[in-house]
Design a protein around this nucleic acid. Structure first.
Lengths: 91, 91
DNA sequence: ATTGGCGATGTCGAGCTTGATCATGGAAAC
DNA sequence: GTTTCCATGATCAAGCTCGACATCGCCAAT
């Protein structure tokens, strides 16, 4: 599923052009992105929670040189699936 | 940021009632949820990727008994932040 | 205001993460 | 709709964070 599919779903609920739905999806993603960058947690009940987390780990590995490279700084966005998303059936 | 804020953002782009925007957000989350439950990966360029992953780890810990409990089965939804979401400044 | 999903706690093993590069494909332009 | 562009995926290695279970409180959702 890509952005087009999401816009498609939006079109089913909102009788509008594809371009409009696409803009809406793009706007929403950007708003959420900005909220996360601002450090805000996005909590959607029944879906999941996006939470910005400061990264404590400070080392990686360079595949070329095979040497440990110190990861300078950074944060990670953690997505915690909600209850309904955890109810995944396993065959 | 909660669902109301997202609906609010949607209202800014789409001149519609709050109820309509709320329904749209709810529909989108449900569609995405169903897609993830169906095993499909949701990839939004510049935002992030939701990917259902089978959980390989098979053990947890019971906080009461302190005993290792075998994690039965399940999948996890992994969210990988896109490039723009990784550009988080660290103070 | 009520309901109920979600957070934190604690342990311990295992998966995830980060970095760079090439190839693929999502996304945007024509 | 098609083509081009550039982000994304995989990989190796070592370190670290996550996850699950159970319960109460908190806050999102109605």
């Amino acid at each position: 599923m890509i952005k087009l599919d999401i816009a498609n779903a939006l079109m089913q609920a909102h009788p509008c052009s594809r371009a409009t739905a696409l803009q809406a999806v793009d706007l929403l993603t950007e708003r959420m992105k900005q909220a996360l960058l601002d450090g805000h947690r996005i909590e959607i009940r029944g879906f999941g929670v996006f939470e910005p987390r400061p990264r404590k780990r400070g080392m990686g590995r360079n595949i070329k040189t095979g040497d440990s490279v110190a990861i300078p700084k950074g944060k990670s966005i953690r997505f915690k699936p909600g209850k309904e998303l955890r109810e995944i059936e396993v065959e």
